[in-house]
Design a protein around this nucleic acid. Structure first.
Ligand code: FES
Ligand code: FES
Lengths: 140, 140
DNA sequence: AACAATTCCAACTTAAACGATAGGGATTGC
DNA sequence: GCAATCCCTATCGTTTAAGTTGGAATTGTT
């Protein structure tokens, strides 16, 4: 079981962008990539998804870059991960539509367990906003 | 984020074995594979790991098969998954040893989030025993 | 006007993991 | 002896994840 790097990198990028958005400062892909030691080409595609979802706004050309598209308290980790991870469920059959087509569903006694795991993950992600993360780091 | 089928199949296999272990009945790989619609060759290797870990015992030859190696209440899902999934942590850096070697660890503000996610998953898995699952299914 | 810094976009490549298969040896009950 | 089983290892094919490349469009600066 692993979260993809897309999700990880995306969250880290959002943190960097958030830290600069106070001063209306746009951060470039290269700056983020350098700071977080991530391939910039790869990061670009990740941020592009975040942009489509409205979590960041962009400005092209010299001095361009990215800035938050919403307030930190209105961006939670579940939303970010949902955009970036292709499918966030811990197994396919968590999804009701898949479940109903599943050969096995009539006697699958394990599904309840996966539902619980899934719910636990979602809860943590949904209850953590970008604001929480920033605050948490300033505190200590 | 996905749990591998190894883990899923393993849990399902354990449930089948558990349901037969009351009567000291050994269940063969083929029976489990047929019941759960899993490739038997693949399942074999999964169960072999469970055997090495002591969760099941085996009997060779005709009428052979597998039976529980411990009481259902002494087998929890975390233990099963730990044996089957190569690495159960949601990201590499959850592990302290990896963390300490991580280029980024000095300024990685996201790790706390992953730790929380990881803990949530582990809690569910640790708090669910084979006995719980069986009981849960008999009930309804 | 030239230039450099940037976002934007799509195609491609590489590497690893997953899921599965194949073949054969060893053991046991009938 | 034979069929059913566990046991072990090697191999394979597909998909996915991760990263690369190349280039177009936009914008500020000199
Ligand atoms: S395998 Fe689909 S519900 Fe269990
Ligand atoms: S990347 Fe290693 S701790 Fe964040």
């Amino acid at each position: 079981m692993k979260l993809s790097t897309k999700g990880q990198y995306g969250v880290r990028a959002m943190i960097v962008i958030a830290e600069n958005s106070n001063n209306d400062k746009y951060v470039s892909i290269n700056d983020i990539a350098a700071k977080e030691k991530i391939s910039s080409g790869y990061l670009e595609r990740i941020i592009s998804k975040l942009k489509k979802a409205g979590f960041v706004k962009s400005e092209r050309g010299a001095n361009g870059g990215y800035i938050l598209g919403k307030k930190p308290k209105d961006i939670n980790m579940f939303d970010i991960m949902s955009v970036l991870e292709d499918n966030i469920d811990v197994i396919e059959c968590v999804d009701v539509q898949v479940f109903e087509k599943c050969d096995n569903h009539c006697n699958c006694k394990a599904r309840k367990l996966w539902l619980k795991v899934n719910e636990a993950v979602e809860n943590v992600l949904k209850n953590t906003t970008l604001e929480d993360i920033i605050a948490d780091n300033n505190k200590k």
